[in-house]
């Protein structure tokens, strides 16, 4: 019997409390579970179903419903399936224990999410600043972060126009005329 993603989801559903699941397309499935079930599901995927690698951890900010959705994407090199395990955490002061112990690369993904969304990952050994240096205040990828206001406060935008600003089309015509004249002279 060939392995299908439906069989896989059924096996996971037998062992864990899955609150929702769907097959997005061939070889890609998403399943929702609670935060308590997350580590169990991921360890099961890695050790029993041979999902060798964690491709990424995504984070989406659902500000209207007041939660972050974290998606752990695991990939198998034997069946070529991708499984997204999704959990929901609250937007303020949320913390999810790290999965660094399962896949080591999770350390970097979590570091980025920590910086961009402010989700805490207790147990992560390298949760320091990543892209942003010396960042204070609200993490910038949260949707209530006002990026335009931030830019106005922190950077100087160039004022409209400058001294000696010229009309581009007029200047271009002048240049072309001068070039023509030059060519004409060379031709003579």
């Amino acid at each position: 019997m060939t392995e299908t993603i439906d069989n896989l989801l059924e096996r996971i559903g037998r062992n864990f409390q899955i609150t929702g699941q769907e097959v997005k397309k061939a070889g890609l499935a998403a399943l929702h579970c609670s935060q308590e079930q997350l580590h169990g599901v991921l360890i099961y995927l890695k050790e029993v179903e041979k999902f060798d690698t964690l491709t990424m951890i995504g984070c989406a900010d659902w500000i209207e419903d007041d939660y972050f959705e974290l998606s752990y994407m695991a990939y198998s090199f034997t069946t070529f399936f991708t499984v997204m395990v999704k959990i929901r955490v609250s937007r303020d002061g949320s913390s999810v224990p790290t999965v660094e112990g399962i896949w080591r690369q999770a350390r970097t993904f979590e570091r980025e999410i920590h910086e961009m969304f402010g989700v805490d990952f207790p147990g992560n050994t390298r949760l320091k600043e990543f892209f942003l240096e010396n960042w204070q205040g609200m993490p910038p990828m949260k949707r209530d972060f006002d990026t335009v206001q931030f830019v106005k406060d922190h950077y100087k935008l160039r004022e409209e126009g400058r001294e000696g600003a010229c009309n581009v089309s007029v200047e271009r015509k002048k240049r072309i005329d001068a070039k023509k004249l030059e060519l004409k002279k060379e031709g003579e």
Binding site: F145, V151, H154, L157
Partner: peptide, 19 residues
């Protein structure tokens, strides 16, 4: 580098290099 370009409202890129 001149005026921010398409990243004029980005929180993390500078807007005028000549400053």
């Amino acid at each position: 580098p001149i005026n921010g370009g398409m990243y004029w409202d980005s929180y993390n890129t500078i807007k005028q290099l000549d400053r």
